[in-house]
Structure formats: C-alpha cells, structure tokens
Design a binder for these strands. Structure first.
Lengths: 134, 134
DNA sequence: AATTATACTTACCCAAAGGAGAGTATTGCG
DNA sequence: CGCAATACTCTCCTTTGGGTAAGTATAATT
C-alpha cells in the first residue's frame, strides 16, 4: 500500500474533534504500518529498559532474531530517528545503541500494549480454544 | 519464530518487579507478534470509534485493504476474542462486527500509539530526510 | 602466521504475506 | 428469466520477510 492517496475516514482525529485530514490519516496509517512491527516493538522495549547496548549484547538478549534482521531493524529505527548509533573507533569495533527522545516516547506508547498482552494472555488463549472447538 | 523455547530477558516484568518468567515472556512476545499487525490495529481503531459495522462498510472505510485481508483479519480477531460477529439470516446476507470488551481494551492500549503517530509524524519525516542525505 | 573478536554486508533461497479477480449461494425485483 | 446485492471463498500470482552462510576489515593475542 505505502503511498495511498485515497481518503480514510477520521480515525482518532474525528473522535477527538481535530481536523480529519485524509492525507494526515494516510500518513499516520503508513507510519503505523512501519512501526507496528514485531522486532521494532521488541527492540524498543529492550532498549527502553536496558538503556545503551551494543550490537551483540542486543543479539544475545533477543534470541529469535537473526543478524540480518537486527541490523535491518536498527537501521530503520535509526533512520526514523528512534535510536542513536554511536561508533567507537576502537580495535574490535564497538557500536552503542540507545533510544532517542522520540524512541522513548514510542516505547512508552507501546508500553500499554505490552501490559495488555501480559494481562490478557490467558483470556486470548481461552478465546482461541473456544473458537477452535466449533 | 513462533514457539521459541529459549529464554528472553525480563522485558516489562523485570522493570516492574514482577516474575521474569521466560515462558510467559515468550508467550507475550508471541502474542505481540500476532496482535501488532497493521490491519489489526486499523480495524481495532475503526471499530472502536464507529461501533458496530458491517463487512462492506468496513471495506469502504479502509481503502487500502483487500477483501481477503479484511475477512482474514476479522476472523483472526474473532478467534482471539476481540470482535463479535453477528450473522442476520436475511435475504442479502448481513453480518455485523463489533468489539468485545477484550477488543476495546486492546484498542485503548493501542490508542497511545495512534496518538504518538499523529503527534510525531513530522518529527519522523524530518529524521528520515536528515538520515537520507548523508 | 594463524586465530579471535566485532559489527557488519552480500548473496542466495524459501516460505509467508498479500493483491487481483473470478466464483458461489440466496432471494426479491423488474 | 435474469440481474442485483451481500459476504464471502478460492485460485493464481507477485512481493516481501526473513533465515543461513560466507565474506570483510583490523589489531591484539597466541
């Protein structure tokens, strides 16, 4: 989808009395699409609670992730202004990653979703079982 | 990754003094992976502000989506206990969708992310431009 | 001289996501 | 009779996601 010029209705803007500009809506939808990705959420959460970390440290803390996905996700987050990358010109290279203010604010926004997931895990599993045996 | 048996560090549990059970962590991560999907977020937001809607009504309100993705996402949300599907046995079929309590609570949790996106759109675009011209 | 450590990049490949479009069942209406 | 409306489902096809493995640069260590 990406550059979707067609208008989308209202969303939050309408329910809060702001301008329901369809172009802004499209951009927000697009931004959500980029940001609402599993690895981004996990890295955001990790960096939020652990502060500054280096590449391999992150890799070890997130077992499921491949090197490729880690670099890719970190790069995209850096491009979007959510993480700050610091390269130290030392013998075995050393690179530190930490959240920017923007990254922290997104991390806080996602925090609600993490808490929801923790709280409603059983509820969802139960709903699934009920649905499946029908 | 899905069923990832390896332990993941703490996440929110640690930063809030709860039990840092790696199995729960894995489940939460998995749940996040399922729920943090673009269409799910959009439908959640839409149904939260518009209440009960029928299939084509939703389709019209979310221009980028294909019929396939709409049915698929709604089915998954229904299975996860987030939406309630009501079929009216009438001549041209009529099906209504509305959020359950669980769905509403997730919608509220995601609300923070929508607001963040609305607020930080410019910030992100600016960061991207700065990053790209380097 | 070979090995190690770090933070990557590149190439190749497979599987899953997702779009387009046609098909289906039902019944009232012209 | 045949068409329209609704809410799908099914098939085919392209795109993207993501894994694995190998390669790279550099200086300290053995």
């Amino acid at each position: 989808m990406s550059a979707d010029s067609t208008a989308r209705q209202s969303a939050h803007a309408a329910s809060e009395g702001e301008t329901p500009d369809p172009r802004i809506e499209a951009l927000v939808t697009d931004l959500i699409g980029r940001v609402a990705d599993k690895w981004t959420m996990i890295l955001l959460d990790l960096l939020e609670e652990r502060g500054e970390m280096r590449f391999t440290q992150i890799a070890r803390a997130v077992p499921g992730i491949s090197q490729k996905m880690l670099t890719q996700t970190l790069r995209r987050m850096e491009r979007d202004g959510m993480v700050c990358r610091t390269v130290h010109a030392v013998v075995p290279p050393r690179v530190d990653y930490r959240l920017t203010g923007l990254g922290q604010s997104l991390g806080e926004a996602f925090c609600g979703v993490w808490l929801w997931a923790e709280r409603n895990l059983d509820h969802v599993e139960q709903a699934r079982r009920a649905f499946d045996e029908r």
